[in-house]
């Protein structure tokens, strides 16, 4: 009797915990790693008395978000706009350019090598020049984003469009497909996975482009905030801005991944990690 009553509540306890455990099991392992890391960071800063201008605790960064959010948010919007607008332009330039490279002997031989060779120039090196030409507004930032992100888009699209096998093209021709049908129904869908690999690479680069451009000359944006906070030894604020940047990058990447799943449904079973 005594033993039974001792075990019963225990069983009840595990039964009540079961759904909770189930939910917790569903949380990806990476989240637990992150939580562990943050706890370690918090404990280390507190126990070792690290001064906040060297390394602020996660709690201090969270506090910074609360206190400074009204300034962070509009600046994050500026950066986000530069990234998305620049990226969109890069896609609109890059993909048609890739098509032109694949279809035109002249562009393939006369222009493509120049594009490839131009990639030896570090984009950061021409940023001051762009500032001189376009001023301090958003234009030079967007131009840098385009310059950085358009190359992987072009390269991957060209590779994808070229990867259609001889047999596939023979098949199209044997059906009497026109050049347009061959492109639209065979080459382009065949190239989509490769094009998306390029787009995903470009997302990361476009965020880098926007921040670097803001470092060089800006009066708003997250890059600008980091620079100002740095000169004031406000490390917590820098961390807050960095986290914003990371969030923008992640949101952007996952949005693209959703688009990819929609555009390439036959590939749903392939890897989720992406090529970037």
């Amino acid at each position: 009797m005594a033993m039974a009553s001792a075990t019963e509540p225990q069983q009840d306890g595990t039964r009540a915990l079961a759904p909770v455990l189930k939910v917790l099991n569903g949380v990806p392992l990476a989240v637990w790693t992150l939580i562990g890391l943050l706890l370690f960071w918090e404990a280390y800063v507190r126990l070792a008395n690290v001064p906040p201008f060297i390394l602020p605790a996660p709690s201090a960064i969270a506090q910074e978000f609360r206190a400074y959010g009204h300034r962070l948010f509009p600046n994050a919007l500026v950066t986000m706009f530069e990234v998305v607008f620049g990226f969109t332009c890069a896609v609109l330039i890059g993909v048609p350019l890739a098509v032109a490279i694949v279809y035109s002997k002249f562009i393939q031989k006369g222009v493509y090598p120049l594009i490839v060779a131009s990639q030896t120039i570090p984009k950061v090196a021409i940023a001051p020049l762009l500032l001189t030409w376009f001023g301090y507004g958003m234009t030079p930032k967007i131009v840098i984003v385009i310059l950085l992100s358009f190359f992987p888009i072009v390269i991957n699209s060209v590779m994808g469009l070229r990867s259609a096998s001889d047999e596939m093209i023979h098949l199209a021709r044997s059906m009497g497909a026109s050049a347009w049908q061959t492109f639209w129904k065979f080459r382009l869908p065949h190239a989509l996975p490769s094009i998306f690999a390029g787009l995903k690479l470009a997302t990361a680069l476009s965020v880098i482009g926007a921040i670097v451009a803001e470092f060089i000359g800006a009066d708003k944006g997250l890059g600008y905030l980091i620079l100002i906070a740095g000169s004031n030894f406000d490390v917590a604020r820098q961390f807050a801005a960095i986290i914003c940047i990371a969030l923008i990058g992640m949101c952007f990447f996952f949005t693209l991944e959703m688009v990819e799943r929609f555009a390439i449904p036959w590939r749903n079973k392939s890897d989720v990690s992406g090529e970037a």
Binding site: E167, H170, S174, H190, L192, I264
Partner: peptide, 12 residues
């Protein structure tokens, strides 16, 4: 009508 050794099905 043509059939190759590779099936050349369109993945999509």
């Amino acid at each position: 009508g043509i059939v190759f050794q590779k099936d050349v099905l369109l993945d999509w």
